[in-house]
Amino acid sequence: MSDRSKLIVTGKPFRFDQERDAEFERLVKRYPTRESMILPALWLTQEQEGWISAEAIAYIADRIGTFASQVFECATFYTMYNLHPMGRNHICICRTLSCWLRGKQEIVDYLKNELGLKPGEIGADGKFSLEEVECLGHCGTAPVVQVNGEFHESMDVDKLKSLLATLK
């Protein structure tokens, strides 16, 4: 993993919208301690904003009543939390064992060429971001690509071409 500790400070206050607020209150009753809401609250933030800012972490910590450092730890430990804005279409390519055996590199190379992006980068126009991720649990239908959370299995370059064409 690379260092994830450089948080972005937006200078703007953060708070949950009405829907997330309600979901937070629904979930908090399910746990005997409020700290258990750290991961769910980080998810709610990411759903709402697409990523998690320093202000959001402070908000979560204060709302839960825990140390900002503990929420900060979780936000950086769990790599699915985006700590900066991603492209409108976030493409994750599984890089691990079975996908590697079944040609994930062709997928990565194609996307690199086609989008002009290396894994870990976000396009200047914000349309795409690319990321190589560890095992996505779809080894039987490798290689697998996840776009905006949706799985695309048994990928090859042709399928990828038609998939890219559908993305805005």
């Binding site: 991961l39 825990t66 503990q70 730890e73 979780c74 790599t79 699915m80 095992c135």
Partner: peptide
Amino acid sequence: TVHRGAGAYICGEETALLESIEGKKG
């Protein structure tokens, strides 16, 4: 209750999983 992880293989280890539910690093 469904508790969602967020990208950490180690949370498959049962005590890391518990830590994660408790709102800590796995």
